[in-house]
């Protein structure tokens, strides 16, 4: 038997980590192809609102998940169009995606603010009072397990398959990849949309399970923390997962500190995750001294003529 508070902490850690990890893993795939997408925050918001709207209207949770994933992937394709095909600045385009995504999701979700959700994502067991670690794991909903499967399969895909090797070749040296006959544009386009799809899944998890309701700007910086996680994880899936667990733990721990007897100001407590993110990024960058593991071609548009 574990302490009830510890169970709550564990549960909240896993949930917060799942949310961050899925979005970070998607961005990792996009960045591996050499495309930087700063629109994670906006893509999560689009997935979150479209999934929530579908769930309210159809009461079909699986349809809602699929709609959320597809809308974010479609939204990410704007970034792919502008940066991959039209070679425009990736930083600017990604930022627009964030601003546009937040505005568009607020516009779409206007009628859905405060509405109650009648369906929920299923779990393996319907145990509402888990008492040990295994039961906490079992009580997580299927998105948690999807995240685990994604972590293992993406890591395998990148390391052991032709697709993964080609993706990385494109991100490391697109000119060399092109002269080897790889389809650089196509690979980058697909990788960007996959990143969007992952952010969409993260978004539906936010509105259908983590919170679950819809309100404007509810992503509250999680997309940016996911971006920081990719750096933290050195562009490796397992390390990114570890980072997500750490950040999830902090997100879960900080609001609980007061119940543990620490006398903290709740308003100050709210900003600590952002301070800690900066702090960790700084420590990590200094420690690694430039050897971050970033794909070499990240942010640089690919031109056939430069060959």
């Amino acid at each position: 038997m574990l302490d009830i508070q510890l169970i709550g902490l564990l549960n909240a850690t896993l949930q917060a980590a799942t949310l961050l990890f899925i979005a970070a893993l998607g961005e990792l795939i996009t960045e591996k192809s050499g495309i930087l997408n700063l629109g994670v925050e906006g893509m999560i918001a689009i997935g979150a609102v479209s999934g929530f709207m579908t769930a309210i209207n159809t009461e079909n949770i699986y349809l809602a998940i699929i709609v959320g994933i597809l809308s974010s992937a479609a939204f990410a394709s704007i970034h792919a169009l502008v940066t991959v095909l039209l070679k425009q600045d990736q930083t600017v385009s990604g930022l627009i995606l964030t601003i546009l995504g937040l505005a568009l999701s607020s516009l779409m979700g206007k009628e859905y603010r405060g509405k109650k959700l009648n369906v929920k994502i299923e779990s393996l067991s319907n145990n509402n009072e888990p008492s040990n670690f295994i039961e906490v794991l079992m009580s997580q909903n299927i998105v948690f397990y999807i995240a685990l499967i994604l972590m293992i399969s993406v890591s395998y895909l990148l390391q052991n398959t032709l697709f993964g090797r080609r993706l990385q070749a494109v991100g490391e040296d697109s000119k060399a990849a092109d002269s080897m006959g790889l389809k650089v544009n196509r690979t980058q386009f697909i990788a960007t949309c996959i990143g969007g799809a992952f952010a969409g899944l993260s978004g539906v998890y936010l509105t259908l399970s983590y919170v679950p309701y819809w309100t404007d700007n509810m992503t509250s910086g999680r997309g940016w923390i996911a971006l920081a996680l990719v750096i933290f994880g050195g562009w490796k899936p397992y390390r990114t997962a570890l980072g997500a667990l750490l950040f999830g733990f902090l997100e879960a721990l900080v609001p609980r500190l007061q119940t543990y007897g620490f006398d903290l100001n709740p308003y100050i407590v709210k900003i600590t995750p952002y301070i800690i993110t900066i702090f960790i990024l700084v420590i990590l960058t200094i420690y690694k001294g430039g050897r971050t593991g970033a794909p070499k071609n990240i942010g640089i548009p690919f031109f056939r003529e430069n060959r």
Partner: peptide
């Protein structure tokens, strides 16, 4: 050499948080 895009963005949340406090 810490990525300034992420750090400057995160300071937004910190500054607004301090304002609310």
């Amino acid at each position: 050499g810490v990525n300034e895009i992420i750090t400057t963005l995160l300071t937004n949340y910190i500054a607004i948080g301090i304002t609310i406090y």
